[in-house]
Amino acid sequence: MRNVAVIFRREMAGYFATPLAYVFVVIFLVMMSVFTFYVGNFFARGQADLQPFFTWHPWLYLFLVPALGMRLWAEERKSGTIELLLTLPVSMLEAALGKFLAAWCMIGLALTLTSPIWISVNVLGQPDNGVILASYLGSLLMAGAYLAVCSCISATTRNQVIAFVLSVAACFAFLLAGFPLVLDFFRAWVPQLVLEGIKTLSFLAHFEAIIKGVIDFRDVVFFLSFIAFWLYAGAWLIDRKKAD
């Protein structure tokens, strides 16, 4: 665990040594506001809740999270530092976890900085703060799930653009896994049992359950095990394919 903390600190320092952290946070906040206030009609609805805010999270993450996740391993491959990192006395999983947690923390930071909207809604009315807290938690978990997928895809290439495009596509598929758009694609050639399995992977279904204010243990477990799976898959892939 000590090594995870060391990698985590280096990654975090890396985000703030470049404009990356600032650009990401600012764009994150601007996009969130635009969608909440203009598209979501936050004020016109006249209700003291953050529904118009959270509704857009799955869609905004579709682009924002791959933008952050694409560099995780692709950049290390491109610059050759992967050889440096993986010949240090650090296990593959420690490296993957440290990197993931740092990027997740960046998203968490950006999400924390949206708190003025929570304060406003409390000034303007009496919202159910339990629901809001649950929604924040759900949003962070979902972002982690996106990020884990991106991390795994980033591990397969040295080209960040490829990592980004593939990550967006993969995240989109997971987002809508329970919907006809994705299910129809599989229906023709996978057995019913697998189809049911795919249905349960839908981020949107799990997220919407959480933002209704019901933190179901199963939804939390779903996101956490999803993250664990993709992190492990990424670590395994790098272990198999380090040279190029």
């Binding site: 280096r10 470049t18 610059s79 050759g80 010949t87 006395p89």
Partner: peptide, 16 residues
Amino acid sequence: KKIGYLPEGAPLYAEM
């Protein structure tokens, strides 16, 4: 832990 290694081309974290 026993090894010190300088990879070919000395890759480094450029922003540090």
